[in-house]
């Protein structure tokens, strides 16, 4: 089936576009833009992680390392070399992809919990390294010179540019996620997820398939990192390599439904709305990670296939629409 003939693709795109145009229609545009940016960023991170976690079945706990690394590389280019935003974004994605390629060869031999632990170790090691890396500002990090925003028509204009870029990038990621899922490459990944040994016997070249899945799932977080820290104006090791954010991304994938294209989009939207509500409550503000943990437990126990998986099994007719 041609991809554009698949209603599943259109549903995912419609949802992503709806989140993106919402600020243009809202009365408080600046505020809504920030909320929408946060959701889009979550969608982008979750959909990227889903290529590895959902399609390939490898749980990467420290996936945020690619967001941090890409963010740092892009930020450095923006700050020190006055690079245009798009160059910084591409460089950030490239850097993360390259790191994943080099790491992947080594750690993708590990399976299950060993792989998950290794990814946490890598994130912590990256944070420690950057803390001592003077070129990137060491423990203090870097701050953008205000003049950088001038070339984008001032800080306010720059915020809109960051937002629109984020929306476009998220759209690209959801399309890529769909194309991967419906391709031969994606079928190979899912075969690996279901039974790696059997997949190899069938002819799936697991080592290289896994590596490319890992690279793909790392490139986009790298680009997202650049956009976020450009908007943020400064970058520091704790923000770039925040394990909490990594775990929240896993929760969003699981909540929506791992291994589906729509799942991470829906899961991110639901989780971010929930988080927004909890953050205003003083009671929940300090325990939001605990809430995420409990939520993850509930999903795994009662809805292991997530919202999309549940809908698919409950309403057979929806299968054609929910990819």
């Amino acid at each position: 089936m041609k991809p554009w003939r698949n209603p599943g693709l259109w549903l995912v795109l419609a949802l992503t576009v709806a989140i993106s145009v919402w600020p243009a229609l809202a009365s408080n545009k600046a505020y809504t833009r920030e909320v929408s940016f946060t959701i889009l960023k979550a969608v982008a991170l979750a959909s990227s992680l889903n290529i590895l976690l959902g399609y390939t079945g490898y749980v990467s706990f420290g996936h945020i390392v690619f967001y941090g690394m890409g963010g740092y590389v892009g930020f450095y280019l923006l700050d020190v070399h006055n690079a245009p935003l798009y160059v910084a974004v591409l460089a950030g994605g490239l850097a993360s992809g390259l790191i994943a390629f080099l790491l992947g060869r080594a750690i993708l031999r590990l399976r299950g919990a060993y792989f998950a632990l290794a990814t946490i170790g890598i994130n912590e090691a990256a944070r420690a390294f950057i803390k001592n890396f003077d070129l990137f500002g060491g423990p203090i990090g870097m701050s953008l010179n205000f003049n950088v925003y001038k070339s984008y028509g001032g800080p306010n204009q720059a915020l809109w540019i960051a937002f629109i870029s984020m929306a476009a990038l998220t759209l690209v990621i959801t399309v890529v996620s769909f194309l991967v899922k419906t391709s031969r490459f994606g079928l190979g990944l899912m075969a690996i997820r279901e039974n790696e040994d059997a997949a190899e016997v069938m002819g799936v070249v697991a080592p290289s398939s896994k590596t490319w899945a890992y690279v793909l799932s790392a490139i986009f977080p790298g680009m997202v990192g650049v956009l976020f820290f450009f908007k943020n104006g400064n970058i520091e090791p704790p923000d770039a390599f925040n394990l909490h954010q990594s775990i929240e991304t896993i929760v969003m994938v699981m909540l929506g439904g791992y291994g589906t294209v729509l799942g991470p989009v829906l899961g991110s939207a639901i989780y971010q709305r929930l988080r927004g509500l909890l953050l205003v409550s003083p009671l929940f503000k300090n325990i939001q990670l605990a809430v995420a943990g409990v939520l993850l437990l509930i999903i795994i126990l009662f809805m292991p296939a997530g919202v999309v998986g549940w809908l698919r099994s409950r309403f057979g007719a929806l299968r054609r629409v929910l990819e």
Partner: peptide
């Protein structure tokens, strides 16, 4: 000998 279906496919 021990069947190896890709269960969720």
């Amino acid at each position: 000998q021990i069947v190896q279906p890709l269960n969720e496919l």
